[in-house]
Design a binder for these strands. Sequence first.
DNA 1: ACCTGAACACCGTTCAAGT
DNA 2: ACCTGAACACCGTTCAAGT
Lengths: 223, 223
Amino acid sequence: MASSTSGSSRLGRPARLSQDAIVTAAQLILDRAGPEQLSMRRLAKELSSTPMALYHHVRDKDELLMLVLDAHAARFSRPKQPTEPRARFVTAANLLYEVLADCPWIVEILASDDLLAVSALWIVEDILDAAIACGLSEADAVYAYRTIWYYTAGELLIRMTRNRRRAVSEGPSHRDKAFAKLDPEKYPRLTSTASNWPQLTERDTHKRGLEDIIDAIIARCAK
Amino acid sequence: MASSTSGSSRLGRPARLSQDAIVTAAQLILDRAGPEQLSMRRLAKELSSTPMALYHHVRDKDELLMLVLDAHAARFSRPKQPTEPRARFVTAANLLYEVLADCPWIVEILASDDLLAVSALWIVEDILDAAIACGLSEADAVYAYRTIWYYTAGELLIRMTRNRRRAVSEGPSHRDKAFAKLDPEKYPRLTSTASNWPQLTERDTHKRGLEDIIDAIIARCAK
DNA sequence: ACCTGAACACCGTTCAAGT
DNA sequence: ACCTGAACACCGTTCAAGT
């Protein structure tokens, strides 16, 4: 009875679904339609299956998101580190950002779990290692990592919500409208800097921020 | 026919609901039950009303959240600033954190809108002003504010999701389990710093991070 | 073991109607 | 003007049943 299908020498009939197929389909939805479009129901539809079939391969939605992050991080290979300690630190920290910057759905994971996909652990490892190479103690290295992580997560969060807004409504954003009716008497600084707020080169700016933070931590820990 | 109720000299009958009452009730739910418990339906129930009645006083849930943030920020009075520029900068930046640190529901707003509640504008104003007093250009002041804001938002986001986790399940967190089965060969730094990760004095640590960031930006912009 | 259909207990929001 | 009930178009997840 088994393996009546032509060519296949596997035992039993193949499962219609697999964790791999589910994760791949989820990534497709996230990339094409955004995180708010990813529901178990829609994912099932995309796979020509039923919502409940998914729960046979994945514990719940949180685990699914974690698996997606894992698959994403696995696509990045661990690069060779510069030898000069500070450059190594900056490179490692920037990589954390680069790995996450292109996936807007990451916020969904941030909001539901720690960021510790197994495939991404080497990023944390490299940052800690670079920090220690710069002369920081282990406790200071952890502190440095955390500062960098907060800065990065915050940037991602804000940028993603701005993108979401833009996608939803084409009109002026809440912030634009708020700026428009600022009282210059009460808020002179906000008024005069208004033209500086529309930001452009986000990636470069983030890297500059990282360098500032790293230099500050090195300087304080050295003295 | 009007004002047949004893004592009241108002015209017409009083509205059963008001924006104020709705916002107050929403704050109560957020403080007592957390952001994931705040739904229009539950809020209506708390007010002995129907979900749809709310929409007469509030455009949608996003606007409601914004109003809640506004009411929260309005409870803080603008403090006197120190005269010394750097101390002013640190104080102003730290205040941004203090205003937000006690409201775990803030993340819900971060994820849905810019943080520009009208009542909170003076915080941004003070940070910009302090930065300029430290000798930064207007463009650099905006950059400094943004760096501080990302750092703060990231900290809030991560801390809040950790609290949420803890509230849901009492068992060891995802991160604790991940640390437990780390391969020391592959991740020596992560392994040896593991004991440094359980963090305690978050508020002090955040302030230290702020000082580091501020010093770095001042230093780079000065040279 | 793997999958299905129906159901549970929710969401935010719209619409047409009531006073 | 203010409020209501019913409905629309969704969620994640559980349960009992099918092969």
